[in-house]
């Protein structure tokens, strides 16, 4: 199998089959919190994509260049959190300069990407599965794209839900959780895709 198809399958596998939100249940806070409007969900997804990919690569570099040679793997979580926080801060500065509207819309959720467990989860999974550099990059990018896809789908569903006649006892958060469950079930269908 050529490398190109291998990486395409890796992207597909991480985005759809092993989706961070619906299969690994990581990053549920922004998934429920920022999915009320399609625009903000897309913005959040793209910001997270940037942070997740950059953090996956940067934490791989730190793992291989610092933690492994010096045999200080016990510092892994601390070091990764430090990197993620710095990357998020950087993204915030860039976004404030380039897109003030999106900065206003995302509000408090932008700094909260730091505590999005999907970002740390992917960085740690990369170490656990002993992925190479390019592999880590695509693993991060695929997971982030999967996150964005799910955010957009869910926000679209919730926009329609807001207009439909939901029974009073299910209105609001309960129906959102039910829809999230159904979406997760639907994504289980991707488990049959060939990933190798």
């Amino acid at each position: 199998m050529t490398t190109v198809t291998e990486y395409l399958l890796l992207l597909l596998g991480t985005a759809l089959v092993n989706n961070v939100v619906l299969a690994k249940f990581l990053g549920l806070c922004p998934f429920m919190g920022v999915s009320n409007k399609l625009d903000t969900a897309l913005g959040m997804g793209l910001a997270t994509t940037f942070v997740l990919t950059l953090a996956a690569v940067a934490s791989w570099l730190v793992e291989r260049l610092l933690l492994q040679p010096l045999d200080i793997g016990f510092l892994r979580i601390l070091a990764f959190i430090l990197i993620i926080a710095a990357v998020v801060q950087f993204t915030e500065m860039v976004m404030r300069k380039t897109s003030p509207v999106l900065y206003q819309m995302l509000g408090i959720y932008l700094p909260l990407i730091t505590t999005n467990c999907a970002v740390l989860g992917v960085a740690l999974l990369n170490v656990q599965e002993q992925n190479g550099f390019i592999h880590s990059l695509f693993y991060g990018l695929g997971s982030a794209l999967g996150f964005t896809l799910v955010m957009v789908i869910f926000a679209g569903l919730r926009e329609r839900l807001a207009l439909s006649a939901v029974p009073a006892m299910f209105a609001g958060a309960p129906i959102a959780f039910i829809v999230a469950g159904l979406l997760s079930l639907a994504f289980m269908g991707f488990a049959g895709l060939p990933t190798h």
């Binding site: 933690l67 010096l70 045999d71 200080i72 510092l75 070091a79 990197i83």
Partner: peptide, 11 residues
Amino acid sequence: YAAIVVLTAMG
């Protein structure tokens, strides 16, 4: 010492 130096340098 490696741990201290690495974390300080990273910060």
